[in-house]
Computed example of a mutant assay.
Amino acid sequence: MVQFLTPPLDLSFAALADATRRGIVERLGRGDASITSLADQFQMTLTGMKKHVQVLERAGLVVTRKIGRVRKCALGKCDLSAEAEWIESCRKLFEARFDALDAIIDEMKQERRDE
């Protein structure tokens, strides 16, 4: 089925799927930075960095503002709580399945001991 709207969760996970973009978010957690300084720090072209920043902006993870001729980047207001909830629900699901598997293995070990 074709989707015309991308849910925010998809945007966040797509943005954070790239190691460079995760690095940008980490860097901006320590303070604002210009796109030029980010490009230098990550050893990439200005155009490449702009594309990464645009992906992060669409997800709400980064905001940019123009100050004179410089475009400054800062962390956005996205708190990632929905993403954390989704990850936690998956963690609980997998934990329950691994617990069930452990129970089966323990049962099999007990049966072998009883033979």
Rank of each mutant, 00 (worst) to 15 (best):
I35T: 01
S34I: 04
P8N: 09
I87Y: 14
T36L: 13
K51Q: 10
K66W: 00
K51I: 00
D99Y: 02
Q41S: 12
K72R: 02
L46V: 01
T47P: 04
M108F: 08
D32F: 10
S12A: 15
A33G: 09
R112I: 02
D32K: 11
E95N: 10
K66P: 05
E107S: 13
L5P: 00
D106P: 00
G76T: 02
V62S: 05
Q41P: 00
R97Y: 08
G48H: 09
L28F: 10
R97I: 07
I87C: 10
P8H: 11
D99M: 09
I35W: 05
Q3M: 07
D79K: 03
L46W: 05
S89G: 01
K72L: 14
F13S: 12
Q110E: 12
P7F: 01
V25T: 02
I87S: 08
K77I: 07
A17P: 01
A19G: 00
S89V: 04
R65L: 05
M108C: 10
R58D: 08
S34D: 03
V63Y: 10
T47G: 00
D32Q: 07
A100C: 03
S37W: 10
K50H: 09
L11A: 14
L28V: 10
D32V: 02
R113L: 13
G29R: 01
Q41L: 14
V2I: 08
A82G: 01
M49I: 03
K51E: 15
L16M: 02
A15C: 11
C73V: 07
I87V: 14
L9S: 14
E57D: 11
V53Y: 14
I24R: 02
V55N: 01
G60H: 05
E83L: 03
I104V: 09
P8G: 06
P8R: 06
K72Q: 12
L80W: 05
L16S: 01
V70D: 08
A33E: 11
V62W: 06
G48Q: 06
E95T: 05
D114A: 06
V55Q: 15
S34A: 08
R113S: 05
R30V: 05
T47L: 12
L80A: 07
D79M: 08
V53G: 07
E111H: 00
C73L: 15
E83S: 12
R30Q: 00
K51N: 15
E85M: 06
I105S: 01
E85H: 04
S89A: 15
F13Y: 13
F13P: 06
